[in-house]
Amino acid sequence: MILRSAKPLSCGLFLRIPQAHRRFFNAATKQNRIFNNIRTPDELHNLTLVSAADNRPLITLWSASWCTTCQTVKPIVKSLIEDEKVGEQEGGLGYAEVELDSTLIGDLGVKFMITSMPTLLAFSRQEAQLETKLVRPEQMKDRNFLRQWLLTEARRGGRAGGAGGSLFGGLFGGS
């Protein structure tokens, strides 16, 4: 019995995947990934590279250890991504916290226009999605609002879309 999903193997043979098992090989469903905290610009750069290569948006929570609101928001975001697996059906999300009080962080906050803490900023294809960043704590504390925001970022699937990371991205079709 030959199925339409037969795929050639390197030796010229065909692999036959029964219909019932094909969904397990679907690239659209990826597990969410939780990364270590970011303390340097190089660590952020490396994670955006990894996420871009995997077509998986990277969600970053910009916070500081002394920020009490950040400490309230952090478990909510992490729970939605890690425990409830929000975004996995849409292709998965990466998540990392950026420690703005790290002595090695440099001017990353200025570069990405982080003007308050906490801030949630998504990266797609290494581009900061500045138009969709969340800065209002009441939105981040609202699980339903936050779930919808995460789903929207996950549906982007590593593609730009929130005006990208450049000033002129939306004006000249940059993506």
Score class of each variant (00 low, 15 high):
Pro41Ala: 08
Glu88Phe: 02
Arg143Ala: 14
Arg125Thr: 11
Gly109Pro: 09
Thr72Pro: 00
Met117His: 11
Pro57Val: 04
Ile105His: 02
Arg147Leu: 06
Ser79His: 13
Gly94His: 03
Leu120Glu: 01
Val77His: 05
Glu127Ala: 14
Glu82Ala: 12
Gly174Leu: 13
Lys141Gln: 13
Trp149Lys: 04
Met113Val: 01
Gln71Phe: 01
Gly170Ser: 10
Arg23Ala: 15
Glu138Thr: 12
Ala122Tyr: 00
Leu121Phe: 09
Ala28Glu: 10
Lys7Pro: 00
Asn36Gln: 12
Thr60Tyr: 00
Gln139Lys: 12
Pro18Thr: 10
Pro57Leu: 04
Glu82Gln: 13
Ala154Asn: 07
Pro75Leu: 02
Val110Arg: 15
Phe123Gly: 13
Met117Pro: 06
Asn46Thr: 10
Arg155Val: 03
Ala122Arg: 09
Arg147Gly: 03
Glu97Ile: 05
Val98Thr: 06
Ile81Asp: 08
Lys30Val: 06
Leu134Phe: 00
Val73Asn: 06
Gly92Tyr: 14
Lys30Leu: 10
Trp66Val: 02
Arg56Thr: 15
Arg22Asn: 05
Arg33Thr: 15
Thr29Tyr: 14
Met140Phe: 05
Thr60Lys: 07
Glu88Thr: 11
Ile105Trp: 09
Leu58Trp: 12
Gly173Asn: 02
Arg4Gln: 12
Ala96Glu: 11
Thr115Val: 10
Trp149Asp: 02
Met117Tyr: 15
Asn37Gln: 07
Ser5Leu: 01
Arg56Trp: 12
Asn32Val: 04
Gly157Lys: 08
Asn55Gln: 14
Glu131His: 04
His21Trp: 13
Ile114Gln: 04
Phe35Asn: 03
Trp66Asp: 01
Leu3Tyr: 10
Val98Lys: 03
Thr29His: 15
Arg22Val: 09
Gly109Asn: 06
Gly161His: 05
Gln89Leu: 11
Gly92Asp: 15
Asn32Lys: 07
Leu100Ala: 09
Ile76Pro: 00
Arg125His: 13
Thr60Phe: 01
Gly91Lys: 05
Glu82Trp: 08
Ile2Met: 08
Leu120Trp: 10
Met140Ser: 07
Phe35Arg: 01
Lys74Glu: 15
Gln31Thr: 13
Glu90Tyr: 09
Ser124Thr: 11
Phe145Ile: 09
Ser65Thr: 14
Gly162Tyr: 02
Ala6Tyr: 01
Glu82Tyr: 11
Phe123Met: 06
Lys85Glu: 10
Pro57Trp: 07
Ile38Phe: 11
Ala154Glu: 04
Ser124Ala: 13
Leu150Ser: 05
Asp54Phe: 10
Leu49Lys: 12
Glu99Asp: 15
Asn144Asp: 14
Glu153Met: 15
Arg33Phe: 13
Cys67Gln: 05
Thr115Leu: 13
Gly161Gln: 04
